[in-house]
Amino acid sequence: MQPVSILLNLLWILFGGAWMAFGWLVAAVVMAITIIGLPWARSAFNIAVYTLLPFGSRAVRRDMVTGESDIGTGPLGLIGNIIWFVLAGWWLALGHLVTAIALAVTIVGIPFAWAHLKLAGIALWPIGKAIVPA
């Protein structure tokens, strides 16, 4: 990780990244406890780590990384994302949106607000995403 990414990630943790990563972690644990939610738990855990340290990484469609379609990027992934949206996606996206608005009020917080808005989009539709270095 480059020094600029390290600095931005440290500032990110202080300005809302830690509590949103905790929200993703809670969603992952709740999904894992239900047993049938294990596919969502895996995605939520991966994005919890990404939410904690987003600078220096980016989220892309998994089929763009591997070059082939899989369960998460096909029709079952669509159904999984719809179920995710109803169960947890909307409230995680709302948390990112509220944090983004609070950060956007300050000039210094605008880059972090933008990152929260990107994470809000991921919160709505996480299945089939892969986290790769930027």
Score class of each variant (00 low, 15 high):
M1Q: 09
M1G: 14
Q2L: 13
P3C: 03
P3M: 06
V4H: 10
W12Y: 04
I13A: 15
F15N: 02
A18V: 07
W19Q: 09
A21K: 02
A21F: 01
A21C: 09
F22Q: 07
G23W: 06
W24L: 11
L25C: 03
V26P: 01
A27K: 03
A27N: 03
A28L: 02
A32W: 03
I33N: 03
T34Y: 00
I36R: 04
G37T: 08
G37C: 08
R42V: 11
S43H: 13
F45T: 07
N46G: 09
A48H: 01
Y50H: 14
Y50P: 02
L52F: 09
L53T: 14
G56W: 00
R62T: 10
M64A: 12
M64T: 12
V65Q: 14
V65A: 14
G67V: 00
G67D: 06
S69A: 12
D70N: 15
I71Q: 02
I71G: 00
T73R: 01
G74S: 15
P75A: 15
G77K: 01
G77D: 04
I79R: 09
I82L: 15
W84I: 01
V86Q: 06
W90K: 12
W90E: 09
W91I: 14
A93L: 09
L94E: 10
L97R: 10
L97D: 10
L97F: 12
V98G: 04
T99W: 01
T99R: 08
I101S: 09
L103M: 07
A104T: 02
V105L: 14
P111M: 02
A113P: 02
W114A: 10
K118S: 12
L119Q: 15
L119R: 12
A120E: 13
P126S: 05
P126M: 03
I127T: 06
K129E: 06
K129C: 07
K129Q: 15
I131L: 08
V132T: 06
P133F: 07
P133T: 13
P133A: 11
A134G: 13
